[in-house]
Design a protein around this nucleic acid. Structure first.
Lengths: 344, 344
DNA sequence: AGGAAAACGTGTACCGGTCTACGACGCTCC
DNA sequence: GGAGCGTCGTAGACCGGTACACGTTTTCCT
């Protein structure tokens, strides 16, 4: 039995396959890429050799001349459950193709994000999915000129790139109609203020405007109460403190994001107010924590998996050559849980 | 003013820089890589040209001959907060270097994980950080022979790769001493059973064994009660149901993971038992949910950021040529919150 | 029947870097 | 003054793929 020493075996290359199959490198390349001009017999032979030698093409070499078969995903931070859902959808969609998704963290500053985007470009990814990027529109367009780009979660569409966005108007209406339907009138809203961090996007404004509009439509213009902090647990906490100090205090709080809603819950817990008996609370995003029985937050669900799948499909289309821009708006749904009830 | 059309500008290459600076490609390459044999004057000139042209080297071309300046991070799923912490540490450590971290999802099956690992290898990453991989030890060693590898979160060390692991013995002791110190005697444990999914690692066993050992050391051998489900919310839920059906029911439950502890809380909530008055609950991992006031779970904290930083440092060392294996064991700490108290 | 187009394979330039070998230059030291 | 040596810089091979041009054979259409 020929015992081969496993020490530092040189990687199998396309030339090895070509030699083994008795054909040219170019032929092997064609077979791999399902390119035009390959007979069945040739394909069989080459594929047998590939399998036998355990050959896998080297991405760097491919990238240099053709494609890298890689989709880059940019996000601020990987620990965000909603982003994970999107990635799940994307990976799912790409599974059938030869493309692989890689994720990169952009962080919370323009500068670090730019470095991350550059890193993706330098690695010649074939497409970029940017989830809620911080970069300004002109920078996004500039990137899109070089690489097929899809921006997810931002309302400023552009002909240069595709976009997918949650219909925040619909989602906010769902929350508000739900609360008003329960009989609430003193409904407050916590929104995001630019002063508390970068928000390159209109999302918070849309949610806040919809809140105000629905209030007015129900003759509750006089009850409008908006606090601007940030879409974080701490922001929600501070916002709730502020709202609870007012008299009469609101009977319901619609936080613009689940993270903030968690802060609201914490603040209520601290002062001994019960949810939903004393105050109803609703969020937006349906993060994983929201579902836990001890939290049970009424919120708005955006189907991240569907968004991710759609993103994958659109990116592959772009890579295949589509030049017109596509813009999707995903309709969210309301998830009613224990944190909302009729006011006492 | 010469107005240059921005349409499809060809990317700046090393040759462009060389021409612009009036030197050879090799000289530019040396400057970029801080290689030996470059005079100060030369460095200045080249760097000025690089800045002026906005040149950035193309990773694929570098990878083909040298390095890709990329660290690949493999994880089952990106939405896990503890993993995100690790990545934060890693990114932090790499920030000073020229290396970039990219993440890839391995999923929960051997097969998908293998595909992800192959993808990283094919992209010629210079080092791989595997967070709690599913793959068998021999497969890990095989990968490590090709690429500097660090395995995080697994107890089976190997001379072929570096490893970082939480000292689960110490962590479990902290929990148990805490509970016993409060006066608990009927303490139950929920562990992970292979039947409920792949666990290529000994972590659950170590936690369970430590639980049993500490019980015996305190003369509580007769009170030992272990339920084997899984380290998931659902597993904790089922485990708690089982434990609560016993009489007398335990006064404290040590879940082997926070996820499971959340399930325990849900189960207790359902049957109307209060925490910590009726039952104390402790977890392990200090996930983000554990900290929320409505959850307030006593748990064990592993410093993911430190682990990530260490991982980065070790990988860079390996890439620089270290051949001996390094193994780190990180000492965890107890975080006491409201879910544990003296038994009534 | 005749010509165009499609089918199939090969050879080779090329992508953008890195690495090796080597030559030119300036300096020191007998 | 020339040998010896370290420094600086260049030319050109090379990495592993893909794209393109090209030649021959087969198929299709009128």
């Amino acid at each position: 039995m020929p015992m081969v020493a496993p020490e530092r075996r040189r990687r199998v290359t396309i030339s090895d396959v070509a030699r083994h199959a008795g054909v040219s490198k170019a032929a092997v390349s064609k077979v791999i890429r399902n390119d035009y001009g390959v007979s069945d017999a040739m394909r069989d032979r080459v594929q047998r050799s590939i399998a036998e030698l355990g050959y896998r093409p080297q991405a760097a070499a491919r990238a240099l001349r053709g494609r890298a078969y890689t989709i880059g995903v940019l996000m601020q931070h990987i620990g965000i459950p909603f982003y994970a859902e999107i990635v799940t959808g994307l990976v799912d969609e790409l599974a059938a193709s030869d493309y692989q998704a890689i994720m990169i963290q952009g962080g919370t500053h323009d500068k670090t994000e730019k470095r991350a985007i550059d890193a993706l470009i330098d690695r010649q990814v074939d497409g970029i999915l940017m989830i809620a990027p911080l970069a300004g529109r002109s920078h996004l367009e500039q990137v899109a000129r070089e690489i097929p780009t899809l921006v997810l979660g931002r309302h400023d569409r552009s002909p240069a790139y595709d976009s997918i966005v949650d219909d925040d108007r619909v989602g906010s209406e769902l929350v508000m109609e739900h609360l008003i339907g329960l009989g609430h009138r003193r409904i407050a809203h916590i929104t995001f203020d630019k002063a508390h961090g970068q928000a390159a996007d209109r999302t918070p404004r849309i949610r806040a405007e919809t809140y105000e509009r629905v209030m007015r439509e129900h003759g509750l213009a006089g009850e409008i109460a908006v606090v601007a902090t940030s879409y974080t647990e701490e922001g929600g906490y501070r916002g709730a403190q502020e709202l609870l100090s007012r008299t009469p205090r609101p009977t319901a709080i619609f936080a613009g994001a689940d993270e903030a809603a968690l802060g609201v819950l914490a603040a209520l817990h601290e002062v001994g107010l019960s949810v939903p008996d004393d105050v109803s609370v609703a969020g937006y995003d349906n993060t994983k924590l929201a579902a836990h029985p001890r939290i049970a937050l009424t919120t708005v669900n955006q189907d991240g998996v569907v968004m991710g799948r759609t993103a994958g499909r659109l990116l592959l289309e772009r890579i295949e050559g589509r030049t017109s821009a596509a813009h999707f708006s995903v309709i969210p749904s309301l998830v009613v849980r224990g944190s909302t009830a009729a006011p006492r």
